[in-house]
């Protein structure tokens, strides 16, 4: 589904310097700390990073779904069609949620309401944002379930979530998320809870439907293989920050940040003999509580320099649409200031 994003016109979604912190007993968790990216119409953006790097928090922030307390969006802007989501009223926000931006959550087992029939949950979603009768909404729900590959959709639409398997529930979630024909679809690791054979099917499904409906997609994943197959652009997140951002081809052709390099190395590949061993990045991702001003990756980095241990690197352009936050690419002037 690789497509040229229409340059020139304003992007559909423009996240600027977003900061989301959590207040905990141990201290302030800077789950997302100053990230920026844009998403054009019909474009697919991948967000990759290890567990805890802030992928989910980023996307929950876009929908203003961060549990508060303890969480709070402390800074930045989230411009959707030029309007800052963070300043919308409750009512305006409800119009964006589900209608303009819809979301598939990480855990299909718990994300559907166990007390309500699938039909109830789908119909209410459709009626919320579209002018239709209940009957038409039911028909559309059945059509959506058929679209996502639920067999005997006419009957199963009246079932409760517990009557579906995990993979089926995730399909239902996808059907529900797509039923409103939102402009942006956020899919938060839509397949991690599922088994491998279904994973590919679900991703293919999202890909196909998004193309058909010209939906822009933010796809969150651990899996760089998935990104390569689906995304136009990729953001690599580490400890609440975007460390590298590039067109997918560029990222694979010339990974610039040592972390990205490590990630790509650690994707198991059949074409390269690896003497039976899998590459992995040594060490653990850092705790994002009270993180010092350093590059958070430096303890695990094999190209570490002195400056990495006490100062966060500036974001540098290393190609067209290719940005990286690493001291390797900074010039001397930036290194010497302070």
């Amino acid at each position: 589904m690789k497509k040229n994003t229409n340059k020139g016109s304003a992007p559909l979604l423009d996240v600027r310097n977003l900061q989301t912190y959590f207040k905990t007993d141990e201290g302030i968790v800077k789950a997302v700390d100053g990230i920026s990216f844009t998403l054009g119409e019909g474009e697919t953006l991948g967000i990759v990073g290890e567990s805890g790097s802030g992928k989910s928090v980023t996307n929950l922030s876009i929908m203003r779904l961060i549990q508060s307390p303890p969480g709070k969006i402390v800074g930045g802007q989230i411009l959707f069609e030029g309007k800052d989501i963070l300043t919308l009223s409750e009512k305006e926000l409800r119009h964006v949620r589900g209608n303009e931006i819809s979301m598939i959550f990480q855990d299909p087992m718990t994300s559907l309401n166990p007390f309500l029939r699938i039909s109830t949950q789908m119909i209410e979603t459709i009626l919320l944002h579209q002018k239709m009768t209940k009957k038409e909404a039911l028909k559309k729900s059945i059509d959506m379930l058929k679209l996502v590959g639920i067999p005997a959709a006419e009957e199963r639409v009246h079932n409760y979530p517990h009557q579906f398997s995990g993979g089926m529930r995730q399909r239902v979630m996808i059907g529900m998320a797509l039923s409103c024909e939102a402009k942006v679809l956020i899919a938060d690791e839509p397949t991690t809870a599922l088994d491998v054979t279904i994973q590919a099917q679900i991703l293919e499904l999202i890909n196909e439907l998004a193309k058909k409906l010209n939906t822009a997609v933010i796809l969150i994943t651990h899996d760089l293989g998935v990104v390569a197959g689906m995304c136009d652009t990729v953001c690599v997140m580490y400890a609440g920050k975007i460390v590298e951002k590039a067109k997918t081809e560029d990222l694979y052709a010339s990974p610039s940040h040592p972390y990205t390099f490590g990630l790509i190395q650690s994707v198991p590949r059949l074409d390269k003999a690896q003497d039976g061993k899998l590459y992995s990045i040594e060490g653990q991702p850092p705790n994002v509580i009270d993180l010092p001003e350093c590059c958070p990756f430096h303890p695990r980095c094999n190209k570490k320099m002195d400056i990495c241990t006490y100062k966060y690197p500036p974001v540098k352009k290393v190609g067209e649409n290719h940005e990286v936050a690493c001291w390797l690419y900074a010039d001397e002037k930036e290194k010497s200031s302070t």
Partner: peptide, 26 residues
């Protein structure tokens, strides 16, 4: 705090509907 209430919010439902339709039974 449960996931399915978050889903209901993400769909753009009113808080009162969420409260009585989605949260009350549980």
């Amino acid at each position: 705090r449960s996931d399915y209430i978050r889903t209901a919010k993400a769909k753009g439902m009113k808080s009162s509907t969420i409260l009585f339709k989605h949260a009350l039974k549980g």
